[in-house]
Design a protein around this nucleic acid. Structure first.
Ligand SMILES: [Mn+2]
Ligand SMILES: [Mn+2]
Ligand SMILES: [Zn+2]
Ligand SMILES: [Zn+2]
Lengths: 130, 130
DNA sequence: TATCAGTTTAGAACGATTCTAATGTATTGA
DNA sequence: TCAATACATTAGAATCGTTCTAAACTGATA
């Protein structure tokens, strides 16, 4: 992501100082799973104090533009995923960490969905012990 | 569940009035997915006003005795499942409803878990559109 | 039936998230 | 270039599901 400002404009997002900092971090080429809190901590370490309100706003703005995926695997916090391809996860509750499963997995033996309902997507979550 | 009092005692739970009412409803032979709120509403309709604190306490007590499974598929509320067998779900976000998938499903192509980690369980969640 | 550990309860506290409304800034068109 | 304006940022309040607290209550036991 060389020109983040251009990238943001392409996605109908004004390249404000805060968005540039956050986008530079999130879209550096390494897929990430962040929460508002982990992102805030990371930005503080980078000496970029951005208010929590802006962090929430920005994550949602990026999500609405399709730049992030939202993962709701846990009732205490929302994860945002920079990998927007359909994929699955390993999840360690102990570490509160997600790891992408990008390989092609198949789910067989799936029954028909209930009447008048259509399958949107299938999510496999592999819980790790330790 | 004929004798709920006996059932509760067998599980090291005192058969108090509130627990008997809740257990009678939850373990009537029909599997259910409840949240504290849906359970509270159901009990109100049955003219059994039980405080929310007791509902949360009781759900957690039953969970700790292995009588309920806890499902965290959604960041806004916790579901408790009376089906404690390993199984999967259809989920309709619109209806906020879960439907059990009891048939034998297989997930193939799963990669090895990360070093020093062991797979605890695999959960398949099938999101429905409407 | 007295005792007491366990239970229930209302309401306070908590924590993630959203909202509010005041202030600041990117964009644009004269 | 530079106001005018629309959009963005922010601190702090509000919200909402859930947990905690501490006082009143009750089931189990002897
Ligand atoms: Mn968070
Ligand atoms: Mn609930
Ligand atoms: Zn991912
Ligand atoms: Zn179920």
């Amino acid at each position: 992501m060389k020109d983040i400002k251009h990238f943001l404009r392409q996605n109908s997002l004004r390249p404000t100082k805060q968005r540039v900092i956050i986008a530079n971090y999130l879209f550096d080429g390494v897929n990430k799973h962040v929460t508002a809190e982990t992102l805030s901590n990371k930005l503080l370490k980078m000496k970029a104090g951005i208010s929590l309100a802006t962090i929430y706003n920005t994550l949602h703005d990026f999500y609405e533009k399709g730049l992030l995926k939202k993962l709701m695997i846990n009732s205490e916090r929302v994860y945002f995923d920079t990998n927007t391809e359909h994929h699955h996860h390993f999840y360690s509750k102990k570490d509160q960490k997600l790891i992408d499963i990008n390989v092609d997995m198949k789910v067989s033996g799936l029954p028909k969905p209930p009447k008048n309902k259509k399958i949107n997507k299938i999510e496999v979550l592999v819980h790790l012990d330790n």
